[in-house]
Design a binder for these strands. Structure first.
Lengths: 189, 189
DNA sequence: CGCGACGTTGATTTGCCTCAACGATTGTGG
DNA sequence: CCACAATCGTTGAGGCAAATCAACGTCGCG
């Protein structure tokens, strides 16, 4: 396993790589399977080596709302559950056969304590989430569906090709019919 | 200054309280003033001792979108700017005369390094933001304006009394006219 | 081949916005 | 302390973007 892709910019000794490698448990999952269900509590976050997953919320009207997609080099979890040990409200589903590295909260804390500088990696990652969530809230509040879609394909061109249109629609907060019409209108130009 | 309210649950020695107290700079600000403007870079976050502030985004149509309110015991900043040293996109405005404690990013890091356990406080705070942003995105995606408003007054009853209706509307992503109609409809029942 | 999943298209409905006007309340200067 | 202006919240009329409901074409797969 090559840790360099994960901890880009952090030079790790052989010994430190071994310690981290021992904590990261490889997982394979096939399309359609789920890693986590609402109501369960998750003690893990997952690094995507390859494949594609999404986390989503199912509302009282049984509509699904995609919170996050994850492809190579992304981490995914229900972070409310992972951080606070609360029951998850999200489901995490595999959209394309995937290989993951599973890391528990306890092991993450241990790595942070025993390997100087690595806590910064995880802190930076958490802080980056704040930024992307904030951008998303601003987008939800201030943009039309068409603008949101154009932003999405610009920001995540690699994801757009991998997932179904109705997954994208559920991420943007619109119906798949509306997304279809938006795409049609864009194609006309 | 009493640090106990800020670092609830963290027992600090006299010496450590002195170190932290030296870094927290008291600030007073009056209604209508702003701490931060879009385009500036902020090196500070602010703890609210008393008073009320909001952070908001102004879109290309000159509409304001409130991202966060902050009252006693909350922290506020443009966290994208504060964490990443990027230019701020938010403005931070005082809604009720306030007393704040200003803490710079560098001082925060120094406190984290010199006082064991305090880094956990800030990490926990950042992780809590993830949870509240996630809940907000889910709300934006899955709830009607009326449900969103009811959630807001349940979750932040202390804030609802302090701020103007159009600030709440801009937080919920609706117009003040719509909020007025929603309130009227709720009052009928 | 036949079935189910997916995307598209049309007709209609609806929730919220926009624009406009008008009380109520608050603040301010004479 | 009053007069007036500004701010704020409310109400109405009309419009629009997206949802809903329904039908249908296409593609992939057992």
């Amino acid at each position: 396993m090559n840790l360099e892709n994960i901890f880009k910019g952090y030079s790790l000794s052989q010994e430190h790589q071994r310690i981290i490698g021992d904590k990261l448990k490889p997982i394979t999952i096939t399309k359609g399977e789920s890693l986590l269900f609402p109501g369960d509590t998750t003690f893990y976050q997952y690094y995507v080596v390859h494949g594609c997953l999404r986390s989503y919320f199912t509302d009282t009207a049984a509509k699904e709302h995609t919170i996050q997609f994850a492809i190579t080099d992304w981490w995914i979890s229900d972070y409310t559950s992972f951080f606070k040990k609360e029951k998850a409200i999200l489901q995490i589903e595999c959209l394309q056969d995937a290989t993951l590295l599973q890391l528990s909260r306890d092991d993450m804390n241990q790595i942070c304590q025993s390997i100087p500088g690595i806590e910064e990696y995880f802190r930076f990652k958490t802080e980056s989430y704040i930024g992307s969530f904030q951008r998303r809230i601003i987008g939800d509040l201030s943009k039309t569906a068409k603008e949101q879609y154009l932003d999405f394909v610009n920001t995540y061109p690699n994801i757009e090709q991998l997932v179904k249109n109705y997954h994208i629609a559920s991420y943007l907060g619109i119906t798949s019919e509306s997304l279809s019409r938006i795409r049609k209108e864009i194609a006309r130009n």
